[in-house]
Simulated assay, not measured.
Amino acid sequence: MIKHIVMWKIKDFAEGNSKEQNCNKIKNELEALKSKIPCIKSIEVGINFSEDKAAYDLVLYSEFEDENALNEYQNHEEHLKVAKYIGLVREDRIIADYKL
């Protein structure tokens, strides 16, 4: 089992939307990938409410059977569409992948 976790800091305003609007858009689009990419075992996206300066705005938690499934997800055209948009609206990103 592979756990894939990504956190983003989102720009205050980008692509005509506020940070809140972009967080909601990204959350909806990422969670919709579950029905489009069969190799996703589990996916959830959370929007941060903490006002701590170290906090990131958005977090993705997802699970995959193995590294091949993670690679399939990362290179799937539907994921790449969402990733492209995220690239336009993010300030920073951190990522962790680990095996259970």
Rank of each mutant, 00 (worst) to 15 (best):
M1N: 11
I2A: 03
H4E: 06
I5W: 07
V6C: 12
V6L: 10
V6K: 08
M7I: 15
I10C: 11
I10E: 01
K11I: 13
K11H: 12
K11C: 15
D12E: 07
F13H: 02
A14K: 00
A14Y: 06
A14G: 06
E15C: 09
E15F: 02
G16C: 04
G16R: 00
G16D: 05
S18I: 01
S18P: 03
K19L: 02
E20Y: 01
Q21E: 15
K25I: 12
I26E: 01
N28G: 13
E29K: 01
A32V: 12
L33I: 06
L33C: 08
K34V: 11
K36P: 11
P38S: 08
C39V: 08
I40D: 10
S42T: 04
S42A: 13
S42M: 02
S42H: 09
I43S: 01
I43N: 04
E44P: 11
I47N: 07
I47G: 11
F49Y: 15
K53H: 15
A54R: 10
A55Q: 12
A55H: 12
D57P: 11
L60T: 07
L60R: 07
L60Q: 10
Y61W: 00
Y61G: 00
Y61T: 01
E63P: 11
F64Q: 03
E65Y: 02
N68A: 11
L70N: 02
L70S: 05
L70A: 07
N71S: 15
Y73C: 07
Y73W: 09
Q74W: 12
Q74V: 08
Q74N: 14
H76G: 06
E78H: 08
K81Y: 03
K84A: 14
K84G: 13
K84E: 09
Y85C: 02
I86E: 03
L88K: 14
V89G: 09
E91I: 14
E91G: 15
I94Q: 09
I94C: 14
A96C: 14
A96G: 12
D97R: 03
Y98M: 05
K99T: 06
L100N: 14
L100P: 14
